[in-house]
Design a protein around this nucleic acid. Structure first.
Lengths: 344, 344
DNA sequence: ACGTGTTACTGACACGTGTCAGTATACACC
DNA sequence: GGTGTATACTGACACGTGTCAGTAACACGT
């Protein structure tokens, strides 16, 4: 746009008042007396000039950017995580907007330094950050937290007391396995979503273990295989499970993408789910319901996570510190076909 | 963060120079002479204080926000469009970053006014906008374009000369249908992705028609059904096609989500793809390759669209106006199982 | 006549940066 | 020894807003 943008000075001139008055009227400053006629004149002048206050100037003088950023670390699990991006992002944006904030999206590519996002905070580009995805417990993060810069993690960073939002992985896994137990299965295997270096992976495994123990069944490490985010890892893991002498009759697979690969392995062996083997997944990716068989899975509320993260962050920004800063959302089991509940 | 943020004045004081010198050194202003020793002292002082320039102040004085926004209209086709969000957004962000820009994500909810995004432009929150999704040809858009505010559309708005980035729908559809023709099919049906009010829908239908005519086959409107973004519409459309006296031996379905529904209809009738009916989809959604049968489909380069839109926009912002502002990206046919090419 | 309070507004400063015009010094040149 | 030029820096202004202290006008009670 050319340089003909109107400023509050132009509005003031047209309305025949001072710039201060314009500001007071347009911002509806309380406890200040402006005559109705003047107020009307200012409003009319602003409308006539199509005046919008300059965001940069506002930011500078107020010290607030009214912006939060979603920092999205990209890694080897990219496709897996992409499945959650629309929900997470739109949840965060919607909550942000409700409180008058904008959302900056900032992916960190694998070839960037792990703390490339720090300038967003230090350079006052945003009032706070949501950090999603793997990151080493680097000092930049802890420094920023120590300097009281508003941060919320999506996921968990054990050891630090940084506010975080995540799904209750252990509970979700327990629900899935309990469901299989209730269907009468006794030999239940598991394929993890990822290596155990990932917290979520460990927690889902622990949920599996607890559900078994709770039912009086032994936890047998021989029935556990390790996925690695993608379909191919699921195929291999199932392949391996099928070679057991005592095949499980059901498998809890802690990731839908991995489960898709496992289902392929079953087909390749001429086996069918759920008749020959019951399957319960985890995540409830968008197309889980459209597979054959439709995937029974543990729904992860991506939108809710985004909303929760943004809301928690904004509370922290505005000094309204909640007493519980470790938010854990509940998952929900979505029963479809692959578990066999409907064929019984 | 508390008020202890260092400013360039602090750096100047510590280095024993003027604030101007600090600015000159840190911005590496060319054609200005600063002694190596002074330069070093300034750099050292900045490092020691952990100084980052204030983005708001920079924006104000430079008149540039170094930010572009992706405006994401949400509508009835939400789930359909969500499939493209990760690719589009990451493509846009990556291109933006390459040129030193940030990306603001701004979804417009159905309950918001259609031009709720205008304040982003008028209020100088961003230097330019990418608009994605349906929008009436409202006056706000045209006004902004007339005022030379940098805009790029994702999709097409017939009639206006606003720069836009889109996929070559007609060519993509032609490629799909030609493929089926090459496999020997003569009776080829079509299910559109959406009602014909959508430009992309019309273009894909036109591509289908042209490919038939090109092969000397008649275009028969009886073999065309209309999808509506979702799976269920595909199921119904295929249902209807199956009731024809002369069933098509192949169907081009201009949306993978719709194709998934169509495949379900086939299964429900005890028919198999590709043996009983060959299927080619459109979009190449993330899980298209994992269905049974794996979907042969026309790949839409979401990342490339995002990248292209951001790059075009930034060129316009920086006054480097390209002579072609209507960018059309090529699609690519991805041959998998549902077309039957592999079984022959 | 005088102090007090209320109403309706305004002048001036501050936010932190980029940048332009200007200055002081040193040095070269004939 | 005066003029010109390159070097190395600095002072002051501008960007457009929010806000605080202040002021003028006026009503009111005594």
């Amino acid at each position: 746009m050319p340089t003909d943008r109107p400023t509050s000075r132009d509005v003031a001139r047209l309305a025949g008042v001072s710039r201060t008055t314009v500001s007071l009227v347009l911002n509806n400053v309380p406890d200040v007396h402006i005559s109705p006629e003047t107020r009307q004149r200012v409003l009319e002048a602003a409308r006539q000039l199509n005046y919008y206050p300059d965001a940069s100037a506002r930011r500078l003088v107020s010290g607030k950017t009214s912006t939060i950023a979603l920092v999205w670390h990209r890694g080897p699990d990219q496709m897996y995580r992409d499945a959650f991006l629309p929900g997470l992002l739109q949840g965060a944006t919607r909550a942000a907007r409700r409180y008058g904030y904008y959302v900056l999206f900032r992916p960190i590519e694998p070839d960037e330094p792990d703390d490339a996002w720090v300038e967003l905070a230090r350079g006052r580009h945003t009032d706070g950050l949501i950090l999603s995805g793997p990151r080493s417990d680097d000092t930049a993060l802890l420094d920023l937290h120590r300097d009281r810069f508003p941060l919320v993690l999506h996921g968990q960073l054990p050891g630090a007391d940084i506010p975080s939002v995540d799904v209750d992985n252990e509970q979700g896994a327990m629900t899935a396995v309990r469901h299989l137990l209730a269907l009468g299965h006794q030999r239940i295997g598991m394929i993890t979503n990822a290596p155990l270096a990932y917290t979520a992976s460990r927690q889902r495994l622990e949920g599996y273990r607890r559900a078994l123990v709770e039912a009086g069944l032994p936890f047998d490490a021989d029935r556990v295989r390790y996925g690695n985010f993608d379909e191919e890892s699921g195929r291999q893991a199932m392949e391996s499970l099928l070679s057991l002498e005592e095949r499980p009759t059901a498998v809890f697979i802690a990731s839908d993408m991995v489960a898709i690969g496992a289902l392929r392995a079953l087909r390749e062996h001429g086996l069918r789910a759920p008749e020959d083997m019951a399957i319960v997944g985890f995540d409830d990716i968008a197309t889980a319901r459209y597979f054959t068989p439709a995937l029974t899975t543990v729904h992860v509320p991506a939108f809710g996570l985004g909303w929760g993260a943004a809301e928690l962050l904004i509370r922290i920004i505005e000094g309204d510190l909640p007493n519980e800063t470790q938010v854990r959302l509940e998952t929900q089991l979505v029963v479809r076909e692959s578990c066999g509940a409907h064929v019984r």
